[in-house]
């Protein structure tokens, strides 16, 4: 298995220097059907896809600075599918000319021994959750409508409790750094989902406390 990046510096160079452009919003449970209906109309014509994932967030804390975070995800509906390891960089939200949040992003598919490997590396799990929902695509854009559930007994993904009465809605595009035109496309797409959902550039650090 490939070693995950262990520096806090953004990964640069090569083909892995991809940025994730992100807009977020939410929709109440009772409006979910209208949203799915609209997404089916707006997005690429494909079979509706659903997913149920278990995400574990691992931390590696150095002596100074922010902890290094890796996200491991596995599909509960497809247990034989590879695990998915993801690194997300610090979000850039300050730039007013950009309509979306931009952050460094590295995705790796891994074998099932990922949790043990991360533990050996010194990573420790910070929290976990179950995410299930629907996924849509429109060109390079990805729309994910997710219900988040907290896990009541650690490790038991059967015993869960939903986090809120809303679904999280995320519109994202993976693009090489500097391709800011994608954020324009995302904004016009987000316009079409109003007033059902307001997709916005949300600075996560403001939700921290």
């Amino acid at each position: 298995m490939e070693a995950p990046p262990v520096t806090v510096m953004p990964v640069t160079g090569g083909t892995i220097n991809m940025m994730e452009y992100l807009l977020q919003g939410s929709v109440l449970d009772q409006a979910l059907d209208s949203l799915l209906h609209r997404l089916r109309g707006l997005c690429d014509n494909m079979e509706p896809e659903t997913f149920t994932d278990h995400e574990l967030v691992y931390l590696l804390k150095g002596q100074q600075g922010n902890p290094f975070i890796l996200r491991a995800r596995r599909s509960l509906s497809h247990p034989t599918a590879p695990w998915h390891l993801r690194y997300l960089g610090q979000p850039e939200v300050g730039d007013k000319s950009r309509h979306a949040l931009v952050r460094n992003c590295v995705d790796v598919a891994t074998s099932h021994s990922l949790p043990e490997f991360l533990n050996e590396m010194g990573f420790r799990m910070d929290h976990e959750f179950v995410a299930n929902g629907h996924i849509f695509r429109k060109g390079a854009m990805k729309v994910v409508v997710t219900k988040l559930s907290r896990i009541l007994v650690p490790g038991n993904t059967e015993n869960i409790e939903r986090l809120s009465l809303s679904y999280l809605v995320e519109l994202s595009v993976l693009a090489p750094a500097g391709q800011d035109t994608v954020s324009e496309d995302m904004r016009s797409f987000a316009e079409q989902l109003k007033p059902l959902v307001h997709l916005e550039k949300i600075d996560p650090s403001k939700q921290r406390h």
Binding site: Q24, G25, S26, V27, L28, Q30, A31, S34, L35, V57, D126, H127, E128, F129, L148, R150, I151, L152, P154, L163, S164, L165, S166, L168, P195, L196, V197, H198, E200, I202, P204, K206, Q207, R208
Partner: peptide, 22 residues
Amino acid sequence: PSFNPADTNALVGAVAFGKGLS
């Protein structure tokens, strides 16, 4: 309204930092 901004914030906080998660 079909959405609740407070929920949005809670959910974003949850995926970003595990806020409100076990």
